[in-house]
Design a protein around this nucleic acid. Structure first.
Lengths: 198, 198
DNA sequence: ACATTGAGCTTACATTTGTAAGCTGAAATT
DNA sequence: AATTTCAGCTTACAAATGTAAGCTCAATGT
């Protein structure tokens, strides 16, 4: 294995170790460099060959999370075409998606209002991308102004993220209830002037 | 000073110290027992005369926060009677209120999706009270079902809390924009079937 | 072929943390 | 007046943390 390959592999190991340690009971701030290094299978000091800081690692994780958001968006769009209600499909897709990438979404939700300014703005940027894409869709769909569409999208994203985070800790049954609830909330936002049924 | 009085005073000193150390850049989880004790002006080990744990202190803070929510609710209601739009008055009241108790609201928002299950459920309980009261109001106002009213209230509370936390770090001008945005979002939730103006 | 590079290692150290053990002195009780 | 209680103190320690210094040795460059 080439040196560059090996280095990349270790880098991934660090990133994956960090993601793995993130959970319902463990925030990024509570991770220690040593713990991450241990999980990644390297010496604590070797960490510095890849990141100057835990903060730098954190920002990398946020970037990674942004990627997943875009992946989620694509997946949702694909399903929308040949299905029923847009909102229902989107929320259900979201719920399925976060089950596979739970820690990513918890990271975003927490660091959005977390303690590090650098993190907050990095997360804000990623979520803004996501909102902007959603707003674009809404604007075309509803023929609303760009400004209103963005405000609408932001509200939707916050609600869905929160609902998602709640759903992660819930039983299947409760998750189903959360999904229904969220769909209802989004329908109101989508413009209560429309008839309630999908 | 009686012994009981003195003890209560120290207890308050600890609680206040904790609240003071909470800020945009410092979450509860990142507080240390020693730091809090130092700020409260007592020896680290004296802390245990009042709380068995940092966790127990944290739950006390959450209770305190619940109290403030009720206070906020009262204040908002008073203003509603002799004013214009309910939503606008409420959001503006909220924004003013959190400027005075910023750390309290940050605590609630963070621990709502934070790392400790005990905290999460404590916060959830307090916020549920708040939501329930709001839902009750909405139900009477809109003649909607209790279930729908609660779902509506929950969405409103999440949006307002997030907006509030964002507003805390913003300039007056940006805060104004956030307020307007939030009012718009709540109007949609309140039932888009009504005419848009207040 | 030899020299350089650099990823990962070991060792080491100063800090900070939570908390155990036990003392003190003033308030409360008898 | 004598005794008990207990809030707060000092001292002490083990564990964990971030990170500096410097070694190793295989992959690269010449």
């Amino acid at each position: 294995m080439s040196r560059a390959e090996q280095k990349e592999k270790t880098r991934r190991a660090i990133i994956n170790a960090a993601f793995q340690q993130l959970s319902a009971d463990k925030s990024f701030a509570s991770l220690s460099l040593r713990e991450v290094a241990r999980e990644a299978g390297i010496a604590p000091t070797s960490f510095y060959r890849h990141f100057t800081d835990m903060d730098e690692l954190g920002l990398t994780l946020v970037d990674e999370a942004g990627l997943m958001l875009r992946q989620l968006m694509r997946q949702a769009r694909q399903r929308i075409v040949h299905n029923r209600s847009v909102i229902q499909t989107s929320v259900e897709t979201f719920m399925e998606f976060i089950l596979e990438h739970s820690n990513v979404f918890r990271l975003l939700l927490r660091e959005r209002s977390g303690t590090s300014p650098a993190f907050r703005s990095a997360v804000a940027r990623e979520i803004q991308h996501f909102c902007a894409e959603l707003a674009d869709y809404l604007r075309k769909e509803n023929k609303s102004s760009a400004e209103m569409a963005l405000i609408q999208a932001e509200a939707m994203v916050i609600l869905v993220f929160h609902a998602g985070a709640d759903a992660l800790d819930a039983s299947d049954e409760v998750r189903q209830r959360i999904t229904v609830k969220t769909i209802q909330q989004l329908r109101w936002l989508a413009g209560g002037s429309k008839p309630p049924a999908g």
